[in-house]
Computed example of a mutant assay.
Amino acid sequence: MDLLELFSIHHTLVTIPLGDGYAMSWIEAIGTLFGLACIWLASQEKTINYLFGLINVSLFAIIFFQIQLYGLLMLQLFFFCANLYGWYAWTRPANDQGETLQIRWLSKSKLMLTAALSALAIALLTRYIDPVFAALARTSVTLLNLFGAELAMPDPSPDAFPFWDATMTVLSVVAQILMTRKYVENWVLWVIINIISIGVYAAQGVYAMSLEYLILLFIAANGTRLWVLAAKRSQQGL
């Protein structure tokens, strides 16, 4: 199989009998599997999750490039950097005793600040989501054209679900940051994100994506359970 063909979204692996039929490409299938493995390993507090995460966001960046979702492509760049930082933060000593980061809860003050900033960011992004994503798309195309892509400047359509899209985007960024610092609340946010995603993708008729996020919901719920128990053991000095 030609390598470029493997990375094409038109190279179908299987057609899933959902709705009118969903043709899942090889790159989407591989990227999804690495994404599921990343989340599962993170729930088990395995640092290797970041390797799977780096592969996942790289493959999805290629997908978003091909389907011209340049705003989401830029978001993958953030997740790529966050995975690199998370790998570093989880393995470097967190104190003079050489201990690594421990699973813990946000302090009350940090929780309130995180909630306030998240609410403000969601409100602002909901209001300005179309120009923000259009700017991200134009920035992506400009950068890609510097490397000879010769892409036409995009003219994105208005967002179908501005509030829910803004909520998923902001909470995904916040959850990823909290995960790199091993805060339990990251899993609570992933549960919320996955519930919203299931509804949005189902409303758009993308049932395969809804099914994928249903699986992610169960993994995130299990991650919440495991990290709550780990945080309790850490507080008790066990």
Rank of each mutant, 00 (worst) to 15 (best):
A123E: 06
Y22I: 07
D2E: 12
N145T: 08
D159F: 01
T142M: 10
I195F: 10
A37R: 10
P158H: 06
P158L: 10
Q97F: 02
V200N: 00
T91F: 07
F161S: 03
L77E: 00
S25H: 12
I27V: 15
L101D: 08
M74I: 14
Y213E: 01
A29P: 02
A221T: 13
Y201T: 13
V188N: 11
V14C: 04
K108D: 12
P158A: 07
F133R: 07
L84A: 07
W40E: 09
A203Q: 13
L72Q: 11
L226V: 07
L171F: 14
P93S: 13
L171H: 03
L171T: 13
Q68S: 12
W105S: 11
D20I: 01
K46H: 10
P93E: 09
I193Q: 07
N194D: 15
N145C: 06
T126N: 08
N95D: 15
L111F: 13
Q102E: 13
P17L: 07
D155P: 00
F79N: 08
Y50D: 06
T180D: 01
L143K: 01
A116C: 12
V170L: 11
W105N: 15
I9Q: 11
V191Q: 03
G31D: 06
V228S: 09
Q236F: 04
P162I: 09
W105K: 11
L146R: 03
V200A: 02
L214V: 08
T32S: 14
F7E: 09
W227V: 06
Y183C: 04
F78I: 05
A123Y: 12
R181I: 06
S25R: 12
I196C: 08
S157D: 07
S172Y: 05
S58R: 00
G86R: 04
S140Y: 01
W90T: 05
R138Q: 14
A115G: 02
T139L: 15
L4E: 11
A119N: 06
W26R: 05
M168G: 09
P156K: 11
S109E: 15
S157C: 01
G31E: 09
Y128G: 06
I177L: 13
Q76E: 14
W40R: 13
I62F: 04
I177N: 02
G148I: 05
A116K: 03
K110G: 00
M112N: 09
I30D: 02
A137G: 10
I193K: 03
L144N: 02
I192R: 05
D159L: 10
I9P: 03
V188G: 15
Y201N: 12
N186D: 09
L54C: 09
A115S: 14
M153P: 00
N83Y: 14
M74G: 04
R138K: 13
S43N: 10
A175Y: 07
A137V: 07
L136D: 04
G237Q: 10
L51M: 08
M153K: 04
V141P: 01
G86M: 10
L36N: 04
W26V: 14
L136H: 04
L18N: 03
S8H: 11
T47V: 15
L113E: 14
P17K: 06
